[in-house]
Amino acid sequence: MERRNFFLSTLSLLSAGTVAAMAAAPAALHALSPLLKRAKNNHDWHDLGPVEDLTADQPLKKTIEVVRKDGWQLRRQDQAVYLIPGAGGPVAVSSICPHLGCPVSYSAESAQFECPCHKSFWGPDGKRTSGPSPRDLDPLPTKVEEGRLYCRWVTYQTGIETPVEA
């Protein structure tokens, strides 16, 4: 009798455990799946216009349309890009604050980039001057083809000292 009870108790516990696992596992794995998949940045090149029109003595704001696979739909989203005058032509930087991802804008009056959320500031060259941002404004890849400037949109991880693609 003792042995039979032990067998039935073990069977009960094992079956109940398996039932619970069968109910929980598919849903849990599904919920955790975004962690297993690396988000892909869109590698399209965006035409910003002829290079000579983009060379100014202060940062120039341009808007590009980024197409992103967003779950069940392709979403078009406008993103601001700043072109900073450089020795070898304009350099493109992202308008996303490296601190916590708020949109950064350039103020011609104070001649600096500023983030409205936590008051980070960068000079007109995109170098960090003050505030909580851990790094300079993030660079975006560019190329020149037949006299036109193209850039790619990249999303970076926020809050760390070196720019790493998200």
Binding site: N5, L8, S9, L11, S12, L13, S15, A16, V19, M22
Partner: peptide, 21 residues
């Protein structure tokens, strides 16, 4: 109930879920 009916209940539930899967 434990373990006599519990053994039947739990193993039958497991069989039904196995069929559903």
């Amino acid at each position: 109930y434990w373990p006599f009916q519990a053994a039947r209940d739990n193993s039958f539930a497991l069989l039904v879920l196995a069929a559903l899967f």
